[in-house]
Amino acid sequence: MLEILQFDFFRHALIVGFLASILCGVIGTLVVINRLVFLSGGIAHAAYGGIGLSIFFGIPFLAGTLGFTLATALVMAAITFHAKHRSDTVIGVIWAVGMALGVLFVDLTPGYHVDLMSYLFGSILTVTRIDLFVLTGTSLFVILSVGYFYHDLSSMAFDEEFARLRGVPVGGLYVFLVCMIAVAVVLIIRVVGLILVMALMTIPPFIAEGYAASLRSMMILAVALSALFTGAGLFLAFAFNLTSGAAIILAAAAGFFLSLGLKRLSLRWKKNSP
C-alpha cells in the first residue's frame, strides 16, 4: 500500500490535499461560525461563470476565474452585509446566474467542450508545480492574516454589534472574509472541485465545533480532520481506482456520521451516569 508514496503524482496530491485542508480548515471555521455556508456555496457555484469567461476569452484560468469570482463575492458582500440572515434569495439568484453564464460562455466557444465533471470533482492527481506554489503562498497568507485579526474575528462572530462598539472594523473584516472565501474556493476548485470545497469547508469545522474550546483549537482540529479525510480518500481512490474527489467526500461523510453517532452516545452515557 505504502509503495504508492514513491509516485510523484501521489505525493503531490497528498501535499495539495494538505494545503487545501489548511485553507478549508481555517476559512471553513470562519464560514461555519459566521453562518456563511450558503454564501460560500453561492460563491463556489458562481465561480463557474469565471471558468466559462476564461475559456471564451482565452485568458488564463486562474486570473479569469479569480477576477470574476472576487467581483461576484464583492457584490454578494455588499448586498448581504446589512441583512446577513435574510439574504438567501439574493445569494440563490447570483448562484444560478453565475453557473448559467458559465454554461453559455462555454456554448459560445467554438469547438470547446469542457468537462463539467472535472469542475465538480476536480483532478487532484494532475496538479502542477505552479498550483503548489500558489496554494502554499495563499495558505501562509491566510494563516498570518487570520492570526493577526484573530481576536477581532472571534469578537465579531460572537456579537457583531458589541464588536463594532469596541472599534472592530466589522465591515472591513466581513469584506475581507468574503474575499478570502472567494480565493480559497477558486484555488481549491482547480485541484479538488466544487463539491469537495463545500464538503471540506463545512464537515471538518462542524465536527471540530463540538470538541473545541476556542476558535483557535476549532481551526486546528478542522485542519487536522480535513487532512485526515483527504489522505484517507486519496488512498482509497488509488487502491480501488475511484474518482479521488468523490472518495475524499465519502471519507469526510463517514467522519461526519461517526461524530454524530459519538455525540449521541456520549449524551446517553451522561444521562445514565449523573
Binding site: I33, R166, E209, L215, M218
Partner: peptide
C-alpha cells in the same frame, strides 16, 4: 442575539470587552 454555538470560554468573552478602539 448572542452566537451561542461559538467555541469561546467565559474569560474569552470578557476579554472581548478589553479591546479599546
Amino acid at each position: 442575539h448572542i452566537e451561542k454555538g461559538l467555541p469561546v470560554t467565559a474569560l474569552d468573552v470578557v476579554l472581548m470587552g478589553r479591546r479599546m478602539p
